[in-house]
């Protein structure tokens, strides 16, 4: 059976469970909040199922390496671009501008 990357139940290569805990970084909380605000009352840009669809469309390598909120922000970006709210180019440009300021 061909399995999608998010469908982890019984996935054969799973190792021991890492019970280490990290405090959520500000950007992780902001990412979580962005989804809740954008999908919430008054905005309705998407539903939680659409966020999941966007997460589940991430390729296997990235899905496994991105970390939890890395997957979320990737999915949020996908949805924003699909809906024409932001373009990939302007996000790229803003990232570059921020890099410039830091230098």
């Amino acid at each position: 059976m061909d399995r999608r990357v998010h469908d982890r139940g019984g996935w054969p290569e799973a190792g021991p469970i890492n019970r280490g805990q990290h405090d959520l970084a500000l950007w992780e909380k902001q990412t979580d909040a962005l989804h809740r605000v954008l999908s919430g009352p008054g905005k309705h840009k998407w539903r939680v199922d659409e966020l999941r669809r966007a997460i589940e469309s991430i390729g296997r390598d990235e899905y496994e390496s991105a970390g939890y909120y890395g997957r979320w922000i990737t999915a949020i970006e996908t949805l924003l671009v699909e809906r024409g709210i932001l373009s990939r180019e302007e996000i790229d440009r803003r990232v570059e501008d921020t890099d410039e300021q830091v230098k």
């Binding site: 890492n18 962005l34 390496s65 970390g67």
Partner: peptide, 18 residues
């Protein structure tokens, strides 16, 4: 769970930009 520091930085940057 956050991934390595390089990846974290790039996701963090995109979150900030968005």
């Amino acid at each position: 769970q956050v991934g390595d520091s390089h990846e974290m930085t790039s996701y963090e940057k995109r979150a900030g930009a968005i």
